[in-house]
């Protein structure tokens, strides 16, 4: 269960360019829920996601996941938390362009010194699922946008996360690839994974398996609808 308790995020505190990105957000998501965060760019979606993934810390309030007050935890614990529980699909994928697809996918597991056999098995599964087996050893910078995204998704899934967070996942994809992505999300949803997706792609808004749509505007929640 994810609980955002009255959180505010302010950038550049006490500077002339001070910016309130999130204002007193109070949200609750249940385990296995698929939540869509909706809103124009600059509405605070990405900031909220990075607070939930503990990539940054709120100025006010706290984020509690499974009774862990992750926004109060020291850096090394949040890293460990992310490694074990979170798969993050970034808007610009944040792949390392000079590494191969394979090397990018194993990145989250490197510090855990994984067992080679299990790792290979897991990666082969993922590569197969996302049809990028033949791109395994290609440098990411030489892959197309769709292929890069599938590498990013594979990387997010390698640690079998309980929570998947995706930030504008279809922003760089054409209609066909977007539909493919939705299929992937659907199958993940069936595995009881908690999924948070920030998007302004209307494709997501009337899917029948979405549990909750949260609408943000200027850093505030203006609407929460259950389907």
């Amino acid at each position: 269960m994810i609980r955002c308790k009255n959180i505010s995020k302010i950038f550049n505190v006490n500077k002339p360019n001070e910016l309130t990105a999130l204002k007193e957000i109070d949200l609750k998501f249940k385990e296995g829920e698929l939540v869509i965060l909706k809103g124009a760019s600059g509405s605070g979606k990405s900031t909220l996601l990075s607070l939930i993934a503990a990539l940054s810390k709120p100025n006010v309030g706290e984020v509690i996941i499974d009774e862990k007050r992750i926004s109060k935890m020291p850096d090394n614990f949040t890293s460990l938390f992310r490694r074990e529980n979170v798969g993050f699909i970034f808007q610009k994928y944040n792949l390392i362009p000079t590494l191969s697809a394979y090397d990018n996918i194993i990145l989250p597991l490197i510090p855990t010194n994984p067992n080679e056999k299990q790792l290979h098995k897991r990666i082969d599964e993922l590569l197969k699922t996302f049809c990028i087996e033949d791109k395994k050893d290609v440098l990411v910078k030489n892959l197309s946008g769709g292929e890069q995204q599938r590498v990013a998704i594979s990387r997010a899934l390698i640690n079998n996360p309980k929570i998947i967070i995706a930030d504008e996942p279809t922003a760089n994809l054409d209609a066909k690839l977007s539909l493919d992505f939705i299929e992937i999300i659907k199958s993940l949803k069936n595995d009881a994974t908690t999924i948070l997706i920030a998007t302004h792609d209307p494709l997501f808004f009337d899917l029948d398996f979405v549990d909750k749509i949260v609408e943000l505007k200027n850093g505030e929640v203006i609407d929460v609808s259950h389907s």
Partner: peptide, 12 residues
Amino acid sequence: GILKALGWKIDD
């Protein structure tokens, strides 16, 4: 930054 976001600790 990416490595950290992917769950690498500072020590790693």
